[in-house]
Amino acid sequence: MELVGVIGGGTMGAGIAEVCIKAGSSVLILETKPEYAEAAQARIEKSLARGVKAGKLDQEAADAALARVRVTLDIDDFADRDLVIEAAPEIESLKVDIFQKLDKVVKPSGILASNTSSIPLIKMANATQRPGQVVGVHFFNPVPVMPLVEIVVSLVTSEETVTAVTDYAKNTLRKKTVRAGDRAGFIVNALLIPYLTSAVRMLESGYATAEDIDEAMKGGCGYPMGPLTLIDTVGLDITLAAAESLYAEFAEPHYAPPTLLKRKVDAGHLGKKSGKGFYDYS
């Protein structure tokens, strides 16, 4: 898989592109506006520069990696891609539309993958004429740091596709992989989201402060980060979308998004990326 495409150059998309170019792949990123394309390029350049400053890679390697990435506004440029990884916002209708378009553009042998954190993969697979070549490759933020990739397999994903993307993630990107079935939340979010929303409910009820909730889970359970800080890091909007997807799938009360989480998203308090979430980062 030498030719890789990434749909979306936001935090996740740029991170995915970065690990691919550092591993030697040629990467094409799709964005929707020139200013978004510039921002995607800047994210990758800034991250690589941090890596050089930290001594994790040398300047020559960073320059070589940058030479392997290009941002485009034209989806038709993806015709030659071996693997395309969709990293668009967690909106089901948007992802389905993207897969319909990719199916018409990408060469017949190309694999179409989604980085969705919670939306059932089969809904995207059914939007294509190649459902056996649709697979989930769920990275975690920040992608260059987090070692895990969930390989999500729908009822119609072929074993050849699973083998190909697993091999790429393990042997080219040097990630750890786990295989998950096609249920909302997969493995990590199905366990993580109820924990996070329980912390929000505890705060909402006045049972404990945000600081005490986070400190309790760090000091009492050995977690490196408290749940509310983690939500701020992931994004309140991302957490809400995952909770809504889980609740829609299973209709279990502990998956229901807390009112406070919904109101903060409505207010634009999305966490570190907006400058305010459960904590103030301004």
Rank of each mutant, 00 (worst) to 15 (best):
M217N: 13
G277L: 01
F99R: 00
Y255L: 06
P253G: 10
L270F: 05
M225H: 05
V105I: 14
Q59E: 15
V200Y: 01
L112G: 00
V105H: 06
A184N: 05
G132I: 05
G9P: 03
A65I: 04
Y223G: 08
P144H: 08
A40D: 09
S26F: 02
L48C: 14
M124P: 06
I29E: 06
P147Q: 03
G219M: 15
K107N: 12
L3G: 00
L112V: 04
S47W: 06
R70G: 14
I213V: 15
G226I: 02
A169T: 12
S158D: 14
A127R: 01
A184F: 03
G55A: 10
L48D: 08
A164Y: 04
V165R: 00
A88W: 03
A241K: 00
M12I: 02
K264L: 14
K33P: 08
S198D: 15
I119C: 02
I187R: 01
G206Q: 05
V96M: 05
K56E: 14
F99I: 06
A256H: 15
V143P: 01
V52I: 10
V134Q: 03
T209H: 03
V137K: 00
G13I: 01
G24C: 07
E35C: 08
L260N: 07
D80W: 03
L3F: 05
E2G: 12
K123N: 13
K95W: 11
M202K: 08
T116P: 04
L173K: 00
V152Y: 02
D212A: 12
A256M: 09
K170P: 03
E159K: 11
R179K: 09
K104A: 15
A243C: 10
G206I: 14
V4I: 11
D77Y: 04
A87N: 11
G55I: 10
T177G: 09
A64M: 09
K104V: 12
L240W: 04
P224E: 10
V135L: 02
L203E: 10
L270Q: 02
Q59T: 15
Q41K: 08
A61N: 13
D82G: 13
V105P: 13
V200T: 07
V19M: 13
A62H: 08
R43M: 13
L28R: 04
D103C: 10
P131F: 01
N115W: 02
N171H: 15
S274I: 08
I85A: 00
K53G: 09
V6G: 06
F99S: 03
V156S: 06
V178F: 00
L83D: 04
A79W: 14
E31K: 00
